[in-house]
Design a protein around this nucleic acid. Sequence first.
DNA 1: TGAAATGTTGGGGCG
DNA 2: ACGCCCCAACATTTC
Length: 474
Amino acid sequence: MSLAIVWFRRDLRLRDNPALAAALANHAQVLPVYIHAPDEEGPWPAGAASAWWLHHALADLAKLLSARLLLRHGPTTDTLLQLATATGAAAVYWNRLYEPAAIARDTQLKRALRAAGLQASSHNAALLAEPWEVSNKQGEPYRVFTPFWKVLGARGLAHGPCAVPSLQRRLLSVQRVAALAPVALDEFGLLPAIRWDEGMAAAWQPTRAAAEARLDEFLADGLRHYRDGRDLPGRDWVSRLSPYLHFGQLGPREVVAAVRGERVGGEDFLRELGWREFAHHLLYHFPHTSEEPMDGRFAVFPWREDKAQLRAWQRGRTGIPLVDAGMRQLWATGWMHNRVRMIVASFLSKNLLLPWHEGARWFWDTLVDADLANNSLGWQWTAGSGADAAPYFRVFNPVLQGERFDAHGTYVRQWVPELAAVPDKWLHKPWQASKGVLSEAGVVLGTDYPCPVVDLQASRERALAAWGKIKNSR
DNA sequence: TGAAATGTTGGGGCG
DNA sequence: ACGCCCCAACATTTC
């Protein structure tokens, strides 16, 4: 009776799981395994918020597998070889990852497994199309989103979710094999030592059931408002599916299948899913872009260093209400509305003139949906150094953005409660309000709420001047 | 998936 | 009636 190991990574679902489906199609029994090997994650080991999510996602997956998910501590290759020997497994199946460090590790692993006489079989669970399946007429990867999305829409959306055969009586009973030496989930040390995770637990349920419920909820309400509503951080008109997609608790094909047929908003939302695809396409083909600007001119960009201002940005104490609201939402819940991500990123890299990499690092540690491809694209896009990036001279004005997209201050008042009583007119620029207005609202600037760490107009001009210095370099 | 500066147009007030 | 000015409102250009 042949046995296959199914090695789970960031494909933590039983539906639409090609590796699991293939293992069940070709083998009588499967042994589901998750291996914790943080040393193998290269320069971007999971941040604290991601680790928190992963813990709960693994607990949920184990439950869905009737407690037959085998947990082990790395190194991966040795572990899988040892498990294969102990169980007599003939094959290992997994779904691909696309970060440079993961690709390097998986390539070596595949070689080692095959050298040991095992089958090794990798699949696509995470993307609508593999990065190497999409190229322009010259056979090169795309660097511009729109043509990329055109091609992907024409071919990549065709595949539906993959059907997975029933698992009934096909999971290897872990207890039967003493040599498997399972590790308890708590031993991975994914949960924080000091309990800062209450806000996250209140905001999120990292389970498959919650992913399905969230998708349904979004389809029922958010989607029809999506085109314009996604820009309003005070409303719940975005999908909030990003962490589920990152950990593979939900697959992009499942999302496409669910959204298809919804006329209003469907196109716009799928386009955002397209940006996720594009990010993975870029990171695969330009694997240095998580570290280095894609636009070479930025190699000599005069970034500043300012620990106090970086700290103020991180902790939501810049004195710019919309920026602070976003950074506090991130800190409290592990997530930030996308419109606000662009604004705080623009503020860091342009108004503060601090390196986008610092922002990427902070997001990496604090976002529950931290994803190397999406994060790298997002930051380089905002900084103006990436593929298909916002031109450097596009500087978001957080006051205007606030007046436009949070006109009644719903969002700012939620996350910056010390300004709650400031009238709409001054909420996004309290430093311009008169003493009378402020005292009426019970606010003393510099005491209850910080004065702005930079002047928006002057810092904008400084950023443009910095850009002027490098724009003709090369 | 900007913002600000600059240019153009057209209506209305007014001598 | 006419020209002039002002200034929204909108369009275009520039950063």
